[in-house]
Amino acid sequence: MTALNPAFADIVELLTAVPDGDEAAVAAVRQRNAALAKPVGSLGKLEQLVEFLARWQHRSAPRLDNPMVTIFAGNHGLAAHAVSAYAPEATAQMVANMTNGGSAVSQICGLHEINLRVFELALEMPTGDIATEAAFEDKMAAATIAYGMEAVAGKPDVIGLGDVGVGSTTSAAAVFAALYGGTGADWAARGSGLDDAGLVRKAGVIDQALSVHAGALNHPLEVLARLGGREVAAMLGALIAARHQKVPVVIDGYVATAAAAIAHAVNPQAIEHCLFAHVSDAGPHGRVIAHLGQRPLLDLGLHLGEGAGAALGIVMIKTALHLHANMATA
């Protein structure tokens, strides 16, 4: 077993030395919940969402003055294997649609006053084809994680993490297979709407990647560098920075969950500040969430990506906090 590249040392330290939540803030929220004009505990998960905010914002009176959904866009060399219903050029088109307000996540965020930020991650330079080479070098993976940390520079009160990228679900599936075992067929999902033949190709690419990199998947960050994508690395960085800056995180779908899975594999406590917004229509997604010891907030049959599920999760949190702050007391 080779030693982990020193480029990852700081990342491992940040994932290991994570700050605890604020239980005194949670107690204050529970005290107010008990005083609201309603039966005790009758708002169920909505009450728990306010506790979640209080714990990870470290505020006895949590707030949502600056809720944010952040989308990372990346392209993948593996897209050459026709593992998606779309060509790689579609990633830039999806980014343009989001920034122009024409996407589902744009509309959700606009309606509910949630800030939306989109980061393009060198779309003109896809990651390496994981069926034949590493996605990117260790130093570039570490640099992309560091870049993702900048997502919290705008000081959001809560941040939703989502992605776009042709080939991203194939890369995420390879990450899950490397972390949890199994074959490509166990983890491949239809993603953008693959037909049966495409799903078989997708599973084959995952199996080939696992074989090619079998001797270099000894650490979760090596799994990321060999099999992951820029969007997963950047979301991991955002997740790490959010924990250290007291920002709760809302995870979107299958690909965003891969970032959480990498963090969890390094240190299970590193994702305690993460809420999983929904379970997607991709069958393996539910298995990953269960493996992480989490329960999704919503089950709407979504398989859209682009952070739409995370945005809806933030809508639920905003609703919960509004009730907590504005209901009458008994």
Rank of each mutant, 00 (worst) to 15 (best):
G237S: 09
T132S: 14
A104F: 02
G193K: 01
A96N: 10
A173I: 12
I11M: 08
E51M: 04
G301A: 14
T2S: 14
A325R: 14
V255L: 13
A141Q: 00
I314V: 08
L304T: 11
G167K: 07
G307A: 01
M140W: 14
A174S: 11
D252R: 06
R287G: 11
L239Q: 11
T319P: 01
L236M: 08
H285K: 10
A178C: 08
E113G: 12
W56I: 11
A9E: 15
Q31V: 05
D65V: 01
L275G: 12
S103V: 12
V247H: 00
N218S: 02
M235P: 06
Y180C: 12
A225P: 10
H285A: 13
Y147N: 08
L210D: 04
D163V: 00
L49K: 09
R63A: 12
Q48C: 02
D20R: 10
Q93H: 08
M327V: 03
K45I: 11
E150G: 10
L224K: 02
M1N: 01
A135Y: 15
D281G: 15
G162P: 02
D65T: 09
A277D: 05
I145V: 15
S84W: 04
T319W: 04
A143H: 10
G154R: 05
G44D: 15
L292Q: 06
A104R: 06
D65F: 05
F52N: 08
R243F: 00
V250D: 06
A153N: 12
